[in-house]
Design a protein around this nucleic acid. Structure first.
Length: 407
RNA sequence: GCGGGUAUCGCCAAGUGGUUAAGGCCUCGGAUUGUGGUUCCGAUAUUCGUGGGUUCGACUCCCACUACCCGCCCCA
């Protein structure tokens, strides 16, 4: 072995392709039904887009970006796709269309992290973004779509968690409340939490450190900071979302510790988790980002969306079998075998022949592995102008004409 | 960036100091010169991640390196 795939990347081999097709097909069908249109944006963008869009206090921008310089231009492999979709939305003046404008996408994202179970450096996401609707029905629409998609994949054992981060106004107050509540035991928290305290106190709630979590429990942090953060409009929005979800029979859990690592989220945030994955158990993450379009130079535009990790979804889906081909031509006359194969293909069937014209036993062995039926085309068949078709499941053999073959 | 673990054939593996490095799967060939999925037989690692060291002798012991895996952080 000389050159191997780079750390954190994976080959998707033919044996795994049926699963990927299944996921992609289900996505397309689900999103089409809801009138979301597919969009494909570049795999790399101006580095600035992510710094401004995703936010420079995030881990993604601070330590996970694949950035390179080309003729004095700084470019970055996209670490997520919301910023790119918003950029395209603005660049093509799509905010001039009558709202809502709804997109879905699929593609590879890149983050420079230590790989582990459920985490790669190149990974695939399927996501949706919806622009122009302020009402919580958009948040509900998008969550419903996620649940529908997962259901379409046969995944039910998942938990939807929701929270509201409020708008800039209530967040300002919330940050102060949080800082006040945490301050007394700040020195007992982990290093990260201490630095978050100044830079982005909201992220303290995201901490998964055991000691921190125990301290949060002990100081009853949850109840101290919950219920005091949302302004009238935001709490109304959140309440409305819950009403929608209830009416839609979508089960959810409220998790006031749910913050999400991206700076652009406002009001609603949510995550969908599985209990059947390792420690990287988030299958879907998303939320509302009412400020992002404006941040990137567009008109004020409310928006909401989410992304799912395709590799993580795939880990939950049973392995699908590769499809067999319709016919395998068994013959000791290769010219006739190629000709028949070609004719079968032209009639819409998948077909292959043995390239080595080995003994029939070996050819049939191969046929049984990869095809539903074998067409035997030996001396006798050629002389008397017929085909022997063998059903490789039942071993039944019939004398057939070409018309029978393509029936 | 920080912890822990593992590296023997294409895949799954046994072997823990002493002549030829088990076994299974896959692949290929034969039994069966026109009939597979069952069965039987045969073939396939001068070599045990890489480089050093200890030893009469190392896959087995020691050191270093590398790769991969798992966890922390964070996320999909």
């Amino acid at each position: 072995m000389f050159i191997k795939a780079p750390k954190g990347t994976k080959d998707i081999l033919p044996a795994e392709i049926p699963n990927w097709h299944f996921i992609e097909k289900t996505a397309q069908e689900t999103f089409n039904k809801a009138n979301f249109k597919e969009i494909r944006t570049p795999i790399f963008e101006d580095t600035n887009l992510f710094e401004r869009g995703v936010g420079d206090t995030t881990d993604i921008v601070n330590k996970e970006m694949y950035t390179f310089e080309k003729s004095d231009r700084s470019l970055t492999l996209r670490p997520e796709n919301t910023a790119g979709v918003v950029r395209a939305y603005l660049e093509h003046n799509l905010y001039r269309e009558s709202p809502p404008v709804k997109f879905w996408y699929k593609g590879s994202m890149f983050r420079y992290e230590r790989p582990q179970a459920g985490r790669q450096r190149q990974f695939n996401q399927i996501g949706v973004e919806m622009f122009g609707v302020q009402d919580a029905s958009a948040d509900a629409e998008v969550i419903m779509l996620a649940v529908e998609f997962l259901k379409g994949l046969g995944l039910n054992d998942l938990t939807v968690e929701i929270n509201s981060l409020g708008c800039n106004e209530c967040r300002k107050e919330y940050k102060e409340q949080l800082k006040k509540a945490v301050a007394p035991f700040l020195d007992q928290l982990c290093d990260d939490c201490r630095s978050r305290f100044e830079k982005n106190p909201l992220r303290i709630l995201d901490c998964k450190n055991e000691t921190c979590n125990r301290l949060f429990e002990e100081h009853n942090l949850k109840s101290k900071v919950s219920g005091i953060k949302l302004c009238g409009e935001c709490s109304e929005h959140y309440k409305k979302l819950k009403t929608y979800l209830n009416e839609l029979n979508i089960k959810y859990e409220e998790n006031t510790f749910l913050v999400r690592g991206l700076d652009y989220y406002t009001k609603t945030v949510f995550e969908i988790k599985s209990n059947n994955l390792g420690s990287q158990n988030a299958v879907c993450g998303g939320g509302r980002y009412d400020g992002l379009v404006e941040t990137l130079g567009g008109p004020h535009t409310p928006a909401v969306g989410w992304a799912m990790g395709v590799e993580r979804l795939n880990a939950l889906i049973p392995k699908l079998e590769t499809k067999k081909i319709d016919y395998f031509v068994v013959s000791d006359n290769q010219i006739e075998a190629v000709k028949l194969t070609s004719k079968l293909r032209k009639n819409g069937f998948s077909a292959e022949f043995d390239y080595t014209s080995r003994k029939f036993a070996k050819q049939l062995e191969k046929a049984a592995k990869i095809a539903y039926k074998a067409v035997i085309l030996g001396e006798d068949e050629i002389k008397n102008n017929y085909y022997t078709v063998k059903d490789l499941n039942t071993s039944e053999q019939t004398r057939s004409s070409f018309a029978d073959l393509v029936k």
